[in-house]
Design a protein around this nucleic acid. Sequence first.
DNA 1: ATAGGGTTAG
Length: 596
Amino acid sequence: MAAPSFSTTTLTPVLIHLLRGASDLASVAATHAKLLKAGFASTIASSNHLLAAYCRCGSMSHARDLFDRIRDRDVVSWTTLMSGYTASGRPQEAIAVLRAMEFSGVQPNVVTLSTAASACARLADAGLGRQVHARAEVAGCARDTIVCTALVDMYGKAGCVDDSRAVFDGMAAPARNAVSWGAMLAVYSQNALGNEAIRLFAELRTSGCGLTPNHFMLSSVLSACASVVRLSIGKCVHGAVLRLGHGNHEVIGVALVDMYSKCGCYEYSRKVFDRIEQPSVIPYTSIIVAAAKYGHGRCALAFLGEMVDRGVQPNDVTLLGVMHACSHSGLVDTGLQFLHSMKSKYGIAPCPSHYTCAVDMLGRAGRLEEAFGLAKEAQVEGNEALLLWNSLLSACRIHKRLDLATLAGQRVSEFNQDVAGGLVVMSNAYASAGQADNAAAVWSSMRQRGIQKDPGCSWIEVKDVSYVFYAGAVSCAGARADEVLMLLDELEYKMREKGYKGRLGSARVSDAHEDDGDGGKGVMVGVHSEVLALGFGLLVVPKGMTIRVIKNLRMCCDCHETFKFISDIVEREFVVRDLNRFHHFKTGSCSCNDYW
DNA sequence: ATAGGGTTAG
């Protein structure tokens, strides 16, 4: 038998060297075996090295076995095990390790507590996170930059944005580094507080802290710009990306593709995408989703073909994007083929969102019997099912199938939570069918049950400022409100000369998709919010510039017709982003060819 | 010196 050839003091560097190159279980286990065979008496340091190596290669069962056999476990052993569980997606077990560690009497340090905070972040559990926060205070670790940054992230992931900000504000200015700023920006961006993220980013640049935006901060801010549809700021950030030399970073490329597509600039998304070298599945998915939103179904299919040819595997999100593209382009049978062949062709089993998309697609195309059949046969539950039956209900209204609408409405009402949207659609279905009494009854029952619904609104960005319009209320236009109404009056007159049959303004029984905000008299609406936003845009956006309107609901047929007429009359281009796609109006027609 | 914090597609 070979004599041990290392002394305790020389072993550790050799061990590190062996373990550093070991990213797979086999080589870690081989090193482990060699040590045992050499008869080396393990020290706590060498055991911890091995433990970390097992964790790095994701083999938590081996890590646990080793850990259980370490007698004199120190804070590093415990922390390493916690970190391993967190990294392999088992944060609950990391917390159990923390509890066992405290029970065993070993004191946590800053590394332990930052690891614990990140386990709580993964669990999105603010209650547990608060306990870790308190423990950090007690241990005197609550001023540590990394602990604080982990807490900022933890509160954010748990949805407690104010707590994140309180921790961030409590950090002394020199303690805030680029990671802390990046974490706070990400918190705002991930919690749909885009404007707060934009404000904080501006603060970074004026704070005199001397930190330069890095790709983490830039991608968070771009996603913030996308979520609140702030094109002009997004373009400025794009400029900063190029100046700072981050233009070739894939993550930034994806954020830019997404930002431009959500801000109504599909062409820019294309240009950014074309500059990404060797795009992975995520950039491909983001451009496919962008194409889907603009109704470019053939384009989306071409991108899918291209990625497959290049050996990039699509995933469930990619295929959902492709199906959305089919749905919004009227490629119904192609979309259905995807649903039925995705398992065999791409190895991805359809999940509830794919079924929901297919049902929506059939409904959009007026193939309602098939849609109902698929809806019943799909194993969809919970919130997904609510979305599914809601979209069917919507389709029934559009295709004036009150018989089926009642059926779908019944399904929707079986869900006790969040039924407002469905009930509004039901009411609108009655109104479309000329049954104003039933429509009013739905509203009054909603009023009695205390159900509220977000009012429909549209907004437009002019020189970095957002103007929000609600149906029937032109007040956002401020001093120019009267001018907007006069302009719309004049346009209505010109539209009539070209054959327009509807009415823009005066109150009427609603076949509307939005109520007027007071909920009670909801079946009476005035002019829709997107028309007001457009009227304002025509006054303030210079001629020759595209007017971009954003709406929080689906665009209705009337407004769609109106926008087509007006684009012809004033010879301008409009882009409208509604709840699920974009419409590009130009010379009297729309990019969707009236299919959406 | 063996353990720690932030980002992208739905």
